[in-house]
Design a protein around this nucleic acid. Structure first.
Lengths: 157, 157
DNA sequence: TAGAAGGTTGGAGTGCACTCCAGGCAAGCC
DNA sequence: GGCTTGCCTGGAGTGCACTCCAACCTTCTA
């Protein structure tokens, strides 16, 4: 898998000259604004994510600016997906901590993700229910010209 | 359909004696705590929903206490479903206003729900993506005993 | 008659997830 | 040298969706 912060275990494999025009190669050393653009998150949010421990340690240029790697981007991708499941930021931080803690946390990570998986399945089901209701109502509203006055009665989808 | 607030158009069809032990018949005249229990919303939230215009006019007993009808419950059911799609309370209030405004708002209601429907479809897709990622990671964590040290590399699901 | 239970109100408070601000620093350009 | 751009920091502020509070009222039960 690829969406995993490595904690402070290992420096970025490449050390591109950290000057002004930031490198945008495939190895990746992206500035905060580049990452903001790619992920749709604001720079504020990225800094905040780092501060609360939702990001692994992020490299810095010699002037102290953040340089995100492709690994960071992949992690942010996972974070985005987890976020979408309704997982709280606090729980994601917990997961990030487990990842940083090392491989002995595999069982707990598995439990955490399995629980999330159940949430996702439940959510999908609920959304499908909602879809049925929406379809029913939309159909009703679409053919409204020939419906009587007190129309929205009976027949719950 | 049945999930529709009727605004102030028509009084509840039945007027059960509004005394202390609240009627729990099929016609329904439920107290706020009964509705709280049935819907999982708190009494606070139910009052708040009414205050912000997310509920139709709610009947009162002769002592001024709320008496919810089955119609109210059905509306709350829809509200719950819409809420789950990620629709904001403000948008739901907007929809409630359209419903109160009468049948001439059918086209706009349809548009609003159709947009929501699209959101739901998109969301279901995203959740399915997430599910794939979760399955991949869970599988990895499950067979962790025989994986090498730097294991979470490559192969994004 | 007292007290408990369950309701009422307006308004204040809470928690989450950002979001912004002020003040500052480094690099590049005219 | 001065200006702009882009980033840095700690801490304060924002918006949403509740959630709670204090003071009060009715009705029922002991």
């Amino acid at each position: 898998m690829s969406q995993t912060p490595q904690g402070s275990c290992c420096p970025a494999p490449e050390s591109v000259p950290a000057g002004r025009p930031p490198a945008v190669g495939t190895g990746g050393r992206y500035t905060i604004s580049e990452v903001a653009e790619r992920t749709g998150l604001s720079a504020h949010t990225l800094r905040w994510y780092e501060r609360i421990g939702l990001m692994p340690h992020i490299d810095r240029s010699h002037t102290g600016q953040r340089r995100f790697t492709d690994r960071d981007l992949t992690w942010l991708d996972l974070v985005g997906k987890l976020r979408m499941t309704g997982m709280s930021v606090a729980d994601m931080v917990r997961y990030a901590e487990l990842v940083r803690a090392g491989e002995h946390t595999y069982p707990e990570r598995r439990r955490l993700l399995a629980a999330t998986r159940e949430d996702v399945l439940r959510r999908i089901d609920e959304l499908r229910d909602t879809l049925a209701v929406l379809d029913f109502k939309i159909a009703h509203y679409t053919g409204y010209e020939d419906t009587p006055a007190v129309s929205e009665e009976a027949a719950t989808p």
